[in-house]
Design a protein around this nucleic acid. Structure first.
Lengths: 197, 197
DNA sequence: ATATTCATGTAACAAGTTACATGATTAG
DNA sequence: CTAATCATGTAACTTGTTACATGAATAT
C-alpha cells in the first residue's frame, strides 16, 4: 500500500516520468522511500487506471517519448486520506544486521568488511544530505527557511535521513572497534563450531 | 533470502519452536529482523526440507505438541557462507516518513499524532533495550562482557537497536517541534490545495 | 569503440501480509 | 466466564526483486 502513497508524495515535488521518479526513489539517494524502476512503472499504471495520476505523453525529438505523470484531484485526496490514517510500525529488515548477529558463527573478516562498506556508504549519503540541505536553505538559517517554506515535509525527511545515517555511522564504528579488539585478544581464528557441540 | 539466514541466526541462540521464534522476531521486540509467524512456519518447513535445520517433535502433556528446531551442520555452513557473501544496502521503507514527506498536503494533526505515537514507541523500545543490556552485562562493565562473551553478535545488534531508537527519538521530537511552530505561525488551516492550481 | 544515460516495458519469481481456522490451558 | 497464551497451519493476496528485451543519444 505504502508505495502507492510514496509515489503520490513524490509527485508533490512536481510532475515526473517513470524514469525521473526512479531517480527520486533510487536506493542510493532516497531519503524517504526506495523502489526499483519496475515497481514504479507497475504502480504508475495502476495509479493511472484508478485516476489518481494523469499521464501525458510528451514527444521528444532526440529521446524516446516519455509519459509525464501529475497528481489529479483524486490523487491529492487519496494522499490526504493516507496521512490521516494510522501508520503501522516500521519493520526492521537489514541484511547487515543479520550478518552481525551471526558474526560469532561466521566469517568475521567478511562481516567487518561489510560493515566498513556500510560505513563508507553512510558517510557518502550523509555528505549528500548535507549538500542538499545547504542548497535548500539557500544561504539562510533553518528558522528562516521553515518560516518561509511552502513545504516542510521534504526538509523534515531530509533531516530524518541525516539523523539515520549519523546513527549508522556511530554503530558501524562501534562494531568495527569491537570486532577489531576481538581479533587481537583471541589467538585462534574462530572456528564455525567453536561454541557448539 | 535474508529471512532464511535470520532464522538460522536466531537458532544460534538455541533451539526453538516456530512459536518461540515468532517471539524473537516480533516487530515490537525484534532488534535485528522482524517477521510474522506465518513467514516463520513457511520458512522453517523449507529449511527442514533442505536439511539446514532439524525438527524434533516434543510431546507435551497439557499443551499441543511442538516441533523444536535446531541448526544442523549444513545449517551452520549455510549461515557461515551467508556472512561471507556481500550484503546489499538496506532499503529505506517507513510509512511514517512518507506521511511526513506529504505533511504539507495532508492532515497535519494526524501526522503529528502519528509521530507522537512513534516517539512513545521508540522510547519504550529503548527502555526495553537498556533493560536487556543490563541483564546481558550482569553487573559487569561492557569491556568485561566483551572480553568474556562467547558471542558478541547479539550484543552488537542490541546496541544497534539502541542507537536506532535514539535517533528515532531525536527525529520525532524535531518533527513535532517544527510542526507545532508551524501551526502557531500560520493562521489558516492549510488547505490541501493551498499551493497548487 | 564502449559505457552511460534516457526511456519503457514483460515475465517469472521470491518475500511479506492478512484472513481464516482449530483447539486446549491458564490467568484474571 | 473471558481473555490471553500456547501451538500450528492453509489460502489468497500484495509487494518487491531479478532477468530479460529494446533502442537511440551522448559522453569518454
Amino acid at each position: 500500500m505504502a508505495l502507492r502513497y510514496a509515489v503520490l508524495a513524490a509527485l508533490l515535488e512536481g510532475e515526473a516520468s517513470g524514469y525521473e521518479l526512479s531517480k527520486r526513489f533510487d536506493v542510493s539517494v532516497a531519503n524517504f522511500w526506495s523502489a526499483t524502476p519496475q515497481q514504479l512503472y507497475r504502480e504508475l499504471d495502476q495509479l493511472e487506471a484508478r485516476g489518481l495520476v494523469a499521464a501525458e505523453v510528451v514527444e521528444q525529438e532526440r529521446r524516446p517519448n516519455k509519459r509525464v505523470f501529475t497528481l489529479t484531484e483524486a490523487g491529492h485526496e487519496a494522499l490526504y486520506a493516507f496521512t490521516a490514517a494510522p501508520a503501522r510500525p516500521a519493520a526492521m529488515r537489514d541484511e547487515l544486521v543479520v550478518k552481525v548477529q551471526a558474526v560469532d558463527a561466521g566469517d568475521v573478516a567478511a562481516v567487518r568488511a561489510a560493515v566498513a562498506e556500510r560505513l563508507q556508504h553512510a558517510r557518502a549519503k550523509l555528505a549528500l544530505y548535507e549538500q542538499i540541505r545547504k542548497s535548500m536553505l539557500a544561504g539562510g538559517s533553518e528558522e528562516a527557511f521553515l518560516a518561509a517554506a511552502e513545504r516542510v515535509g521534504p526538509y523534515l525527511t531530509l533531516l530524518g535521513g541525516r539523523v539515520y545515517e549519523r546513527s549508522n555511522i556511530r554503530w558501524c564504528e562501534l562494531v568495527l572497534r569491537v570486532l577489531a579488539d576481538r581479533e587481537h585478544s583471541r589467538r585462534p581464528a574462530l572456528s564455525r563450531r567453536a561454541t557448539s557441540e
